[in-house]
Structures are given as C-alpha cells and as structure tokens.
C-alpha cells in the first residue's frame, strides 16, 4: 500500500519540535529511525498529518558518563549501541542485546528512543531498560521529566509520555555485576517468541536485587516479581533457579500468538531462565 498523504518537516533543534507541536498538535508524529513507523504507514495503520523528523537534532545524540549514570541520547542507533566503548564498559547488557535486534540494515537506522517509545512487548531494549532499572528522560516545553523504565511501558504499544513530550535520552545506572540476555526466535533477527533480560548482584554468596524481565510474553516487558523474590537473598543454586522457574506460573500469562499457545511461551521463559541463570552458577560459587 502507498502511504497516506501527509506533510514532512525536519527539525534541527528541540525548539523546532515544540514549535511544530504548538502549531499542529496531535497530528504530529515523531520520526526517528523510521524502522517501525514507516512500515506501519505502508499498512495505513496510522494516518499522521505531519511527520516530524528529529534525526538532525544534536541534543538527542551522544553517549556520556555522568557520575554513576550512563546517559544515552534518544537518537543512538542500535549499531552505535553495539559498538560504543562506554556502553560495553558500563552497560554491556545493551551491547549484548544488539545482535538480537532485527538485521544490520535495520540496526543502522533504528534508534533506542524509537524502540522505547514504540514499546513493542517483544522488543529487546525495553526489557533491558527495565532490567537495568533505567530512567527514561522525557522533555517538553515544561522541561525534563524522569520516568523509571519500570513505569514507562504502560500497556501494549503504550508508553507514559504525555502529549507534547518526547524522549530525549535514557539514563542507565552503571550496570550491576551480572546481566545477560537470551531469547528464542524462529529466525535470526525475528522478534523473540520469548526472551529474558536479567540483571542482579551477588553479595556474600547471595542474590541481591535480581531483575528478571521477560519479553515477547506479555503486553510489555514483564518484570517477574515472584521469580525475583524466589531468588532474592538466596544463593544461586539449582534449587533457587528451579524456584524462580516455578514462580513464573504466577508472573507470566503470555497471550497466545502464531508461534504457539500461552503454555509454550511460559515453558520457553522457564528454559531461558535456566539458561541465563545456570551460566552464573560458577561466579556465584566463586563469590561465596
């Protein structure tokens, strides 16, 4: 299908963005990498009045270390995330996620801001953001607002941005000692049938602040509270891992999709739980 007729405007500063919002209101749709938006336009799923291209706004770029926080500009492309040295050092989970996202051509254009804003429940970066306890930095004419990632993804393809707000950056607390991502996808580059982004620390041989975040199994990234409680404060062992797996019955109620029923997705989440956590059994024992 052909795109609906619409206007296109390229913003070169945040001031341009606010001016466009003021002039055209809700008919404005932000265009970042376009890797999701342009495809949905070709299905005529949405008919925006104006596409506002934000990719030339310098304030939305760059990755900087600010004290204990890594600030990643909204326009950071997936490919940049994968090779940035600061990211590798302070938030390696994000770098580890990149090869799972789509294909090189899409990673060359897609942005972290676009991925978070779109809030696809099967996307990697929203899950990583929640697992790392990141903060989404939103801006509007009223200034900046910090929204914890765990409160940002409100429902299927829905986020906590208010009208007139855009994402300018995401701030990641420097990563805890252990973090990993794994997923099961039909073909490389496909959205996952089920995935897990996990982060935790181990202190005195016990798990501290575990964050197991599942994707592709709910209406957004799912922080598995019961599974985390099954690990918190306990040594990481075959038993505690089994307890976390069992707890997923409470945490996950995956919608069935073309790949299979709810039960299969929960099963795959359990398999991923074991795969990710088993890999940490040795370091835990060493720490203990």
């Amino acid at each position: 299908m052909k795109w609906p007729a619409m206007t296109y405007h390229r913003a070169t500063s945040l001031a341009d963005v606010w001016a466009a919002f003021a002039a055209h209101g809700p008919s404005v749709t932000i265009l970042a990498g376009g890797q999701t938006l342009l495809a949905t336009l070709a299905f005529r799923l949405s008919e925006p009045g104006m596409l506002l291209d934000i990719t030339r706004i310098p304030e939305l770029r760059g990755i900087t270390l600010q004290g204990q926080v890594l600030r990643i500009g909204a326009l950071t492309r997936h490919v940049e995330l994968g090779r940035d040295l600061l990211v590798r050092q302070h938030a390696p989970l994000l770098a580890q996620a990149v090869p799972h996202i789509a294909h090189p051509a899409i990673r060359n254009r897609g942005t972290i801001g676009g991925s978070l804003a779109y809030a696809d429940p099967a996307a990697e970066l929203p899950a990583c953001a929640v697992a790392l306890d990141a903060v989404v930095v939103a801006a509007s004419t009223a200034g900046e607002r910090r929204i914890p990632a765990s409160a940002f993804f409100t429902d299927l393809l829905q986020n906590a941005l208010a009208p007139g707000e855009i994402i300018v950056a995401v701030e990641i607390p420097i990563q805890p000692s252990l973090a990993a991502i794994d997923e099961v996808a039909r073909r490389s580059g496909d959205y996952a049938m089920a995935g897990l982004a996990a982060a935790m620390r181990v202190h005195d041989g016990r798990v501290v602040a575990p964050r197991l975040v599942y994707f592709g199994v709910g209406r957004g990234p799912v922080l598995a509270g019961a599974a985390c409680r099954a690990l918190e404060g306990r040594p990481l062992t075959a038993e505690s891992i089994a307890a976390a797996q069992a707890a997923l019955t409470t945490d996950l109620d995956p919608p069935q999709d073309l790949h299979g029923p709810s039960e299969m997705k929960r099963h795959l989440a359990r398999v991923l739980t074991a795969r990710v956590l088993n890999a940490w059994l040795r370091p835990t024992e060493m720490a203990a």
Binding site: G260, P261, M264
Partner: peptide
C-alpha cells in the same frame, strides 16, 4: 515442523 509441534510431540506442552 515448528517449535510448537515439536514440543507437543515431546509432550512438553499439551
């Protein structure tokens, strides 16, 4: 031969 069908054949899922 999808993952779903193989998991069913294995009895992993009903």
């Amino acid at each position: 031969f999808t993952p779903e069908r193989i998991l069913r054949a294995l009895g992993t899922i009903a």
